[in-house]
């Protein structure tokens, strides 16, 4: 018994040694920036000729933040963007996954084609959409005019809510493939005998979807919602390339506002405070994500 305890203890110690490098790397690349960002948000940071100069600023950056109308608007727009994007992505991704799971859609070709938007680099994706939305030469206007749906060019990125929603569409296009593949994997994990049993009980296609498919996809759906919420909250590339926050700040979302205050206006402490608000939102979503994964791990251990 004593030998077994010693053996386990030495295995445990060796495990710590092996995991130590990874933990140290994580502390450097994750924990340090998070803590530094938190500290910066309580400081007044100035560009002083020899790097930066720091002065204690208390909670002023945060009080400034919550009394600033642009921040409140950016927060609202970020929430709107996230909610609508998540709903759209989940709906489209589930539809695509169901089609790919159908015997006619199981060719690898469809999966490769599906991956193209996801595989594009974010900036290349943004430039692509910039040309699609171009007011004079964009394929979107040309197509709609060709189909007789509109008579004049529409300035897709020229009016506030329209510009925000066009960015949203571009982001949805890029996000759907990954979530669709995630859902496809979830669909393929649902045992086929459940569908057979449902059919024997006389369930039609819709009833099978509601009572077999959706419950079987529950964990996948939660994970998809959480991951997509995090990705939607941190959208930046599309705004930077397509609108630079315009027109009239109507496409300024939290991440873009944080960048603008930090790197353009050089108000590092204030920019860090915005980033921290975003971090807290994402952290809460990450907790939901971890919780969503937990039952499955427990089930595996029990099994």
């Amino acid at each position: 018994m004593q030998t077994s305890n010693n053996y386990n203890r030495s295995r445990y110690r060796l495990g710590i040694w092996f995991t130590a490098p990874a933990v140290i790397v994580l502390l450097i690349v994750l924990a340090y920036p998070i803590i530094a960002s938190l500290v910066l948000s309580f400081l007044k940071v100035r560009f002083g000729g020899d790097g930066l100069t720091f002065a204690w600023h208390g909670v002023t950056n945060y009080t400034d933040l919550f009394t600033n109308q642009l921040f409140r608007e950016a927060l609202f727009r970020s929430v709107y963007f996230t909610v609508v994007e998540v709903a759209a992505v989940i709906f489209l991704a589930l539809s695509v996954a169901l089609m790919l799971n159908h015997p006619l859609g199981r060719s690898a070709f469809y999966r490769v084609v599906l991956l193209v938007p996801w595989a594009l680099s974010p900036v290349a994706n943004a430039v692509l959409w910039k040309w699609i939305y171009n007011a004079n030469y964009g394929i979107l206007n040309q197509s709609l005019i060709g189909l007789g749906l509109i008579k004049e060019n529409i300035i897709w990125l020229g009016t506030p809510w329209l510009a925000l929603n066009m960015i949203l569409i571009a982001d949805v296009w890029k996000a759907v493939p990954f979530i669709a593949l995630l859902m496809l994997a979830g669909l393929q994990n649902i045992p086929s005998y459940l569908y057979k049993a449902a059919r024997l009980d006389g369930a039609n296609a819709w009833q099978q979807f509601v009572h077999v498919t959706l419950p079987g996809l529950k964990t996948t759906l939660v994970i998809s919602v959480v991951l997509q919420s995090i990705w939607a909250l941190k959208v930046f590339d599309l705004i930077y390339v397509l609108t630079k926050g315009s027109p009239a700040d109507s496409t300024v979302l939290l991440n873009y506002l944080s960048w603008r205050e930090t790197f353009s206006n050089l108000d590092v402490g204030y920019g860090a405070a915005i980033a921290n608000v975003l971090f807290i939102l994402m952290f809460m979503l990450a907790l939901v994500y971890i919780r969503a994964l937990r039952p499955r791990q427990t089930a595996q251990r029990d099994g």
Binding site: Y133, N134, A135, N136, Y137, N153, I155, W156, L157, G158, T159, A163, L242, T243, K244, S246, P247
Partner: peptide, 21 residues
């Protein structure tokens, strides 16, 4: 050109001029 409100770089506008629009 109403697109001017959406052009974020000088090249966007230059292209319209260079196309004779």
């Amino acid at each position: 050109d109403p697109g001017s409100l959406s052009y974020v770089g000088i090249n966007d506008a230059t292209n319209v001029f260079s196309a004779g629009q």
